[in-house]
């Protein structure tokens, strides 16, 4: 008689236990992140001031600043975004809206998925061989940005395709039924609807680009730079490289400088993400979505 009630109780217990398990895993992940940020902040915050942001690197920690890395990273991210976003989004539009499903399309899809898994150092080698040497771009920001674009293109394409795929087909149908061309349907309905998803993918990709070090070392951005790049053909260094450089020095003060550098890097990332959230919010308000 009692078995039904007992079974039900047991099922509720299992359900509660699973909830607890998920909660603790989430807490663990957040706690580790929190400890990391706390430590970095404690170490680096005393060094973080206006001078730190406006000085170039130096042999003396009290005179060293992050300006070259910060400017290099901003150049790099801007150029990478300008190259990778149009190519990636348009490729996704082509694959989702225009390409006929078939062997060629499947082949491209599989290859893009594979490219997303290629270690970043390999992209550095490609960048060195093609952009730095073959195209003679040298160690310029442009060469770095093009290498980074290669690296993040698969991520942008895959995320944009998912976002485009999620646009209900009924929306396309009704637009076509009104006598629209595919371009008009894509421009007025598919892309606006897919924009939040595309933006999320773009931000994830750019966040990756901002933190990558290996391909930049490979193409020769690991140098002492005491100037701010003034054009896409100038040499540069980037925040993660500067941070890496400081952590590899023996003096304790440089390690603390590295922490301050990490804070700057995190802030740049935060500002980028906040911008994306803002754009998304503004977009959703205009479109009544």
């Amino acid at each position: 008689m009692n078995t039904q009630a007992q079974r039900l109780k047991k099922r509720h217990q299992i359900s509660a236990a699973f909830k607890l398990f998920c909660l603790s895993v989430t807490c663990l992940a957040v706690a580790i992140l929190g400890i990391l940020i706390l430590e970095v902040t404690l170490l680096g915050l005393p060094w973080l001031n206006f001078d730190f942001l406006t000085r170039f690197p130096s042999r003396f920690p009290e005179k060293a600043g992050i300006l070259a890395g910060l400017a290099g990273t901003l150049w790099l991210v801007t150029l990478t975004a300008a190259i990778a976003i149009p190519i990636g989004v348009l490729a996704a539009v082509y694959l989702e809206e225009y390409a006929k499903p078939g062997r060629v399309s499947t082949f491209i899809t599989i290859n893009i998925a594979n490219l997303a898994g290629v270690p970043s150092i390999v992209y550095g080698i490609i960048g060195l061989a093609i952009f730095v040497r073959f195209f003679g771009l040298d160690r310029s920001v442009l060469a770095g940005a093009m290498t980074m674009s290669l690296l993040i293109l698969p991520v942008i394409i895959i995320a944009s395709r998912e976002a485009i795929k999620a646009v209900p087909s009924s929306l396309r149908q009704v637009a076509f039924a009104l006598g629209a061309t595919r371009w008009q349907v894509t421009r007025d309905h598919v892309l606006p609807q897919a924009m939040p998803g595309i933006l999320t993918g773009v931000i994830l990709a750019l966040s990756r680009a901002i933190g990558e070090t290996a391909p930049l070392i490979m193409i020769g951005a690991l140098t002492y730079i005491a100037f701010v790049p003034e054009g896409p053909m100038d040499e540069f260094t980037a925040l993660p490289i500067q941070i890496y450089n400081w952590t590899s020095r023996p003096q304790e003060a440089f390690h603390e400088l590295a922490s301050a550098g990490i804070i700057v890097l995190l802030l740049v990332l935060l500002i980028m993400n906040a911008t994306a959230v803002w754009i998304r919010y503004r977009g959703s308000k205009n479109k009544f979505m």
């Binding site: 009924s170 929306l171 149908q173 009704v174 039924a177 609807q193 479109k287 009544f288």
Partner: peptide, 9 residues
């Protein structure tokens, strides 16, 4: 169409 499907505009 079968379901009312106005554009989100």
């Amino acid at each position: 169409f079968q379901k009312p499907n106005p554009f989100p505009k």
